[in-house]
Structures are given as structure tokens and as C-alpha cells.
């Protein structure tokens, strides 16, 4: 219980620090948020009037405490560029981003771990080298660049996949998705709108592949290294000497013991994908949090930037907490440390 309390209190501290730093930075950079609200050709008088309306004329500490108080009461302010409540904007866009992260992470985990295991099995051979090159490319290639490459090749030249968007525009006229949970692909499945499901998956392939590249590379390298290390342990040799089947040795003993670090990396990678979507959503015009974040940054839409930062910080903390719980389940010694 004490450990749980420690984790929660440190999480709260991190949240306070993140919000304070972002808030202060947003205020000290030379910029006039009022201009973002009313457009670049507004008059000086309009700009001054709006600064008072938005409370920008007050001292920064006063503005910060007001912000914290209102945030705790569900008022995250209004986006300067879209004029909509920030919390509503985030709620509207979050499902698109979470679906993208889900598919990207599923791909990265399934294929990343499988490739790592395969590479471990063929250590030092051609297959191992090929997988290593693909993994290193995945880790080192910037997402926006990979996204553009995939877009140009598979959407532009080969026309196998759509270049952008979550669905074809015609879909909303011909096969509109009934909103149930707000997660469009999931909703299309549960409402039996399979034309929309296929269309959504078709649109998902390139952004999910782009977003998963880093995690895929990391997980495959991690899985390979861990498996090789575990397979060289004495207890594996003993198990083999006792004549246990190779499948039992590999999956029950080796893979299980190689899993905890892989799960940690999976968790951290998932958290990384929250900010990874910034680039990917921009390239693929994906209507999620990432594209909202980029547009907010470019227009210095500080209420939106604050909201997204808070969301990202909460996302990181929740994922880390879940990783800790899973880690502890697999290895109870974690709670003792």
C-alpha cells in the first residue's frame, strides 16, 4: 500500500511539474495568443480587448492557479485556433489516436517479438542479419520521413493504400458509421458495417506501419538479446540435459524469463507512441490528437498545448504504472525493491 501511495504521489508531482513548466514556457515566449484567436489582421484595439477577456493581462502565477483550478473542475479552456473547448477537442480526437496506437503496437509486438525470436534462433546467419538491418532501420528512421516514403510508394505510385485520412470521404455518405463507443473501427465491427471496417483497416495500414517502426525495431532487438542471454543460462542447459522438449524449454522457461524486460520496453514504447503520433498523424492527415498537437504548436494555441501535455503526461504515468503492475505480477521481487 505504501509503495502504491509513493507511486501515486510521485505521479502527482510529475503532473504538477509538467503543467507548470509548459504553462510558464507558453507564457514567456514572445507571442500574442490573442492574435491566434482573432487572426493576423486584427486591430491593436481588438487584440488588447481580447487579452483582457482571456485573462492574459493578469500575472503569470495568477493565471497558473486559475488554470489548475479550472482544469480540476473539467474546464480545460478554449482552443485559440478552433474556438472549441479543449477537453471536448481531446475527447473527440482521442479514439482515432488510440485506435492508431493499438494497431501500431499490436503490429510491433506481434512481429517485433516474433522477428526477435526468429533472429535469436538463426543467430549469426543471413536471417539474423536481415532482421537486424530492418530493426535498426525501424529505430533510426524518422517517422515523418518513413511516412512520406511509404505514402509516396504505396499510395502515390502503387496505389495499394489510401494516402491519407481515417476513411474514404464517400463512406460518410454511403456507409455512415453509427457511433456507439466513439472508436470508429470498433464501432463499425459491432454495428456490422463491414464496408466501413475494411475501409478503415485499409486506411490504417500505412499510418500504423509508420508509427510501429520504432517499437518494432526496439522490440525485435530486445527480444533477440534477451532470449540469447536466457538461453545461455545454466538452468536452460540443465533442463535440456534432463531431456525436456525443446518447445517446453523455449516457451515455458526461456521466453517467460525473457519477457519482463520486453514488457517494460513495450510499455515505454506505447508511451512513446503518444508523441510519435504527432508526426505520423500530420503526414497522414489523421484526425487525432497528434495532428491537433502539431497545429496547436504551430499556432501557439497554448490552452490546447497545455491540454495535450497534460494528457500525454497522464498517459505516460498510467502506462508506466500498468507496466509496473504487470512486471510485479511476473516477478514479485519488484515490490520488494
Amino acid at each position: 500500500m505504501r509503495i502504491l501511495w509513493n507511486r501515486l504521489s510521485s505521479a502527482l508531482l510529475v503532473l504538477c511539474a509538467a503543467s507548470f513548466i509548459t504553462f510558464t514556457l507558453a507564457r514567456v515566449i514572445p507571442s500574442d495568443p490573442a492574435l491566434a484567436y482573432i487572426g493576423p489582421k486584427a486591430t491593436a484595439a481588438d487584440s488588447a480587448k481580447l487579452r483582457i477577456t482571456l485573462g492574459l493581462d493578469q500575472p503569470i502565477p495568477v493565471q497558473y492557479f486559475k488554470y489548475v483550478w479550472q482544469t480540476l473542475h473539467g474546464n480545460w479552456g478554449y482552443s485559440l485556433s478552433t474556438k472549441q473547448p479543449v477537453l471536448q477537442e481531446i475527447i473527440n480526437r482521442l479514439p482515432a489516436t488510440l485506435e492508431l496506437i493499438f494497431f501500431a503496437m499490436s503490429f510491433a509486438v506481434i512481429f517485433g517479438v516474433a522477428m526477435g525470436v526468429y533472429a535469436a534462433k538463426y543467430r549469426g546467419r543471413l536471417q539474423d542479419s536481415v532482421i537486424r538491418i530492418v530493426a535498426i532501420a525501424g529505430v533510426s528512421m524518422p517517422a515523418f520521413w518513413l511516412g512520406l516514403l511509404l505514402q509516396m510508394l504505396f499510395a502515390g505510385r502503387l496505389t495499394w493504400f489510401p494516402a491519407t485520412g481515417q476513411f474514404d470521404i464517400d463512406l460518410k455518405y454511403d456507409n455512415p458509421i453509427s457511433k456507439v463507443t466513439g472508436f470508429p473501427i470498433f464501432d463499425s465491427i459491432i454495428t456490422g458495417n463491414f464496408a466501413a471496417t475494411v475501409n478503415g483497416l485499409h486506411h490504417m495500414v500505412l499510418p500504423a506501419l509508420t508509427l510501429s517502426a520504432y517499437s518494432f525495431g526496439l522490440l525485435s532487438r530486445m527480444a533477440r538479446a534477451n532470449l540469447l542471454e536466457v538461453m545461455s543460462q545454466d538452468y536452460i542447459k540443465v533442463a535440456r540435459a534432463y531431456g525436456l522438449s525443446e518447445r517446453l524449454v523455449f516457451f515455458k522457461l526461456a521466453l517467460r524469463n525473457a519477457l519482463p524486460p520486453i514488457i517494460t520496453v513495450t510499455g515505454l514504447s506505447t508511451a512513446y507512441l503518444i508523441t510519435g503520433t504527432f508526426f505520423v498523424e500530420q503526414v497522414y492527415n489523421w484526425p487525432g490528437i497528434g495532428s491537433f498537437a502539431v497545429n496547436s504548436l504551430l499556432s501557439i494555441d497554448y490552452p490546447a498545448i497545455m491540454g495535450i501535455t497534460l494528457l500525454a503526461a497522464v498517459g505516460y504515468l498510467v502506462i508506466n504504472f500498468i507496466v509496473d503492475l504487470i512486471h510485479a505480477k511476473l516477478d514479485p521481487r519488484v515490490w520488494m525493491r
Binding site: F111, F161, D168, Y173, D174, A195, V198, N199, L201, H202
Partner: peptide, 21 residues
């Protein structure tokens, strides 16, 4: 996994063109 990818990569048109749009 292969089936999922294959479904996703189908490039057959899945929706009709919105008329008058």
C-alpha cells in the same frame, strides 16, 4: 497476422462514390 494484413491491404473499392458531392 498474415490474414489481418491481407484484409487490410485489399485495394478493392469498398464504397460507392458519393453522388453530388
Amino acid at each position: 497476422s498474415t490474414a489481418l494484413l491481407a484484409v487490410a491491404s485489399l485495394s478493392i473499392p469498398t464504397v460507392a462514390q458519393g453522388a453530388g458531392v
